[in-house]
Design a binder for these strands. Sequence first.
DNA 1: CCGAAAGTACCTAGATAAGT
DNA 2: ACTTATCTAGGTACTTTCGG
Length: 366
Amino acid sequence: PRRPLPRVSAAALDEAAASGDASAVLWRVLIGAAAARWRHADIAALADTAPGLEHVRTYRDRSTRRPRGRGEAASVLARQWDKAVKYVASADRQIGDDPTFDARADAIAARVRAVQTRADAAAGRWTRGGGPADRRVLDVLCVLALQAVSAAVEADTRRLALLAGIGRETARTALLRLAEDGWITQTRPADGPHGAHWTIDPHGLIHTPPTDSRSQAVPRPAGAGAAERTSLLATLTARITDAAHDLFSLSPGLGHLAGNTYSRTSTDPQQLDDVARCIGASPAQARWLLDRLTEAGVLIHDRRGWRRPAHDRRTAAARSLGIDGRLAERAERYRIERELWAWWQAEEAWMNAPKRTAPTRRPGRG
DNA sequence: CCGAAAGTACCTAGATAAGT
DNA sequence: ACTTATCTAGGTACTTTCGG
């Protein structure tokens, strides 16, 4: 979901950068593009022509500018882009660019938090039958909604399936089940090459209180909404990244529910009851799942409880079961890997960026 | 203007795991 | 041990876009 550039950055993109400080102009463009969730390919497509990207094409030699080589230009852009993405992730720069952003981020973060709270309270809904797949799809929809800063998002079944680490048909039926139970609603059917639109706000709760200037009854510090959105995004992205893995596929794999269980653990030890409550399972079922995860070598069990080892062992475990690479094969089949890969790399750059707030839990694998 | 290509949803059949 | 239902892959039909 790429948004238009903020005004400052759009102006910088058209600025004749050769005469002034070209690197500063480039920085203004990249920051805005990263905040608007552009991808590297989007900005790279403009590198040859846009006046504001002069710094990519040439470098300053005393009072003149000399052209860079093709490879050097690409590496300059890649390096600066990486820096910009990390900067935006750590500093919540969007607040300054877009005065409505904080309020919108606050609304969507509150909605996602409500959905997650309600889901966590629905014990048993996510452990039986298609429940594990349902919960993954719900979490992915929450992430997409946070990214788009909108409760309604376009979500075709393939993209959803790949992000959730499940099959496309499974994702489709999960959507139907979630809709039937009132967790989500389809706002627009599929239209040719475009997927259907779904909302995690079936009753339209978000749009009722608009960003009214007089509704300042609850004073919140500036940037609170943006910060909460960032924090939720980090938590939920880590969760789906942890769960979507070959090890948690079917057959000799440990299954979807085991993946969801693993995604709720961290390197800090947890008690059985905590884990059981997180996934809404009975203590006996949770115990069985934790034992299987421990047996596979991805969790450690001692008298303080269950925790993850310092290094992620999911891939090693999958390899020893002979199911390494399943998800990648599936992605290959769906033939949209290239597209998804770009999104995912931006997301990982986000995840690995230095955190401004207190460190939560570590993202699983780098 | 027409056909090819690409992307999506829906349907069906087989395999596998969970529940009783 | 048996029944049920869930997941997955393959195939089909429909729509839009693009190139000759």
